[in-house]
């Protein structure tokens, strides 16, 4: 393997990881508030299809991004309304959201299949992009990838360092205690759910406008579920979500590169690699049961009624 190949692998790793990172970070915030939303796949698809439709009609990718993000958020609010106001079961409602989003996106996007758009282009950051190896890996992407870096930084700070993050965690640990302290539990959860939806929408938009600028039904191909699993295996810590997403991306790329290099390993075995590597590494990282308990939102998935 030469230097150029390694550089290209790392570049592709970051690109592949971006949708996973976005959707997982969104779900992280949602779960930190104690709400489990299994509707990632549906919200991503809605983001992807709306972003694509609006970009096709207006010719402006930025408007497409905004509408896609908004679409993901609306889907999440629908979920929030069901579980918080109508007190439906979170798991069942989340699954329903995925099924609904898959069907609705297919319906909306039907006449846009087979159309092409001019999606996002890469922007090379001067000076930084010429650093060997990591220059190409980090500084030659499109705008949405840079945005995902910024969002990662912001969420890291929010979860560990901010007062608002503390409130969010309080609500997720024990909503009753949080309410006794005077925190608006339902409102905070609504905001967390909406943020999760917006991030899922952005992940979908990234797929349909930047990664593979096209719309086809079910184009997320299970990425929402992988993002969901990443949150759990990363034990609700943003930095581990980043590690997990990158590992997954790296293994996905290696699985293809290794074949091209002519190694004789069964492709079915290699196709398993991303899942295996990510799970093993993240489980190894979080094998301390006490620490694990510390980071898991204690009231995750449990209903909280407005009157409680």
């Amino acid at each position: 393997m030469d230097m150029e190949l390694i550089t290209n692998i790392l570049f592709a790793m970051v690109r592949t990881a971006t949708p996973l990172l976005l959707v997982a970070l969104g779900e992280l915030i949602c779960e930190k508030s104690g709400v489990l939303n299994l509707g990632q796949e549906g919200m991503m698809l809605m983001g992807a299809v709306l972003g694509f439709i609006v970009t096709t009609l207006t010719g402006n990718v930025y408007v497409g991004v905004l509408v896609g993000v908004f679409g993901g958020m609306m889907m999440a609010l629908l979920f929030g309304f069901s579980v918080q106001i109508l007190n439906t079961n979170q798991v069942a409602t989340g699954l329903a959201l995925t099924i609904f989003g898959t069907g609705l996106s297919a319906f909306l996007g039907y006449s846009f299949v087979g159309q092409s758009i001019d999606g996002f282009h890469s922007i090379n950051i001067p000076v930084l992009s010429s650093i060997p190896i990591i220059g190409k890996m980090l500084f030659t992407h499109d705008l949405l990838v840079y945005l995902s870096f910024a969002l990662f930084g912001g969420i890291y700070w929010f979860v560990y360092k901010s007062r608002a993050g503390l409130k969010l965690k309080a609500v997720g640990e024990n909503p009753h205690a949080a309410k006794a302290l005077g925190l608006p539990v339902i409102q905070i959860r609504f905001m967390a759910i909406a943020f999760g939806g917006a991030m899922a929408g952005l992940a979908g938009v990234y797929l349909s406008l930047a990664y593979t600028p096209l719309w086809v039904e079910n184009m997320t191909a299970g990425k929402g579920w992988i993002g969901l699993a990443l949150v759990v295996f990363a034990t609700w810590r943003p930095e581990r979500i980043l590690i997990g997403a990158w590992l997954f991306g790296l293994a996905s790329i290696l699985h293809l590169v290794i074949q091209g290099l002519g190694f004789e390993i069964s492709p079915s075995l290699l196709a398993m690699l991303p899942y295996l590597v990510t799970i093993v590494v993240l489980v190894m990282l979080s094998r301390d049961p006490i620490k694990q308990k510390l980071f898991t939102p204690a009231s995750l998935g449990k209903p909280f009624r407005a009157g409680d």
């Binding site: 593979t212 191909a221 590169v257 091209g260 290099l261 492709p267």
Partner: peptide, 27 residues
């Protein structure tokens, strides 16, 4: 001829990665 097996009939992101991996290797 360089052959890459992706173990799927349909996954736009994976197909993109496969195409890029091939092009990185001189295809």
């Amino acid at each position: 001829i360089k052959i890459v097996w992706v173990s799927t009939w349909f996954d736009p992101a994976k197909e993109t990665n496969a195409a890029n991996a091939l092009m990185d290797q001189g295809v």
